[in-house]
Amino acid sequence: MTDETRKLAIWEQMVGAIAFANLDGLECYDRSQTESWRPALRGYVLAALETLPWQFRKPLKLYSTVLGIASIVLTGRRPASLSPSERMRLVRKLRLVPAFGTLEKLVRAMVMLSLFDVAPRLHAQAERQEVKTSEV
């Protein structure tokens, strides 16, 4: 777990875990730099949730916090520090929890929407940066 991840609130970690659980195993995008894209994808999802009206945002944060705590109880670890297989197992269990399906659908839609935008853009930025560095 990076310093940045450690600073995330428990609800943010939970949303991140749901987002990544939906990404793990996907082969439909260029995964060569997956690890560097993931924080940006999570950032996109969290930013999107922050822009929701409070009537949606607050219950959603509360619900995600409860799920995060449940995750600690179930796995003994914070959501951000789960391995991909643990994350997947956790999400599978949580699918039995009422209203989790709606949250997962929301997070998944955001991840998928950004997957083909954020990732290629970051990749392009990184390439530009590399070119600049080599020119210097």
Binding site: G25, L26, C28, Y29, K105, R108, A109, M112, D117
Partner: peptide, 18 residues
């Protein structure tokens, strides 16, 4: 578009998306 396709099929699971 990839975005729409993946969102539409996502509820069928990762194997279906792939």
């Amino acid at each position: 578009q990839p975005h729409y396709l993946v969102t539409t099929v996502a509820h069928h699971g990762t194997d279906a998306i792939n």
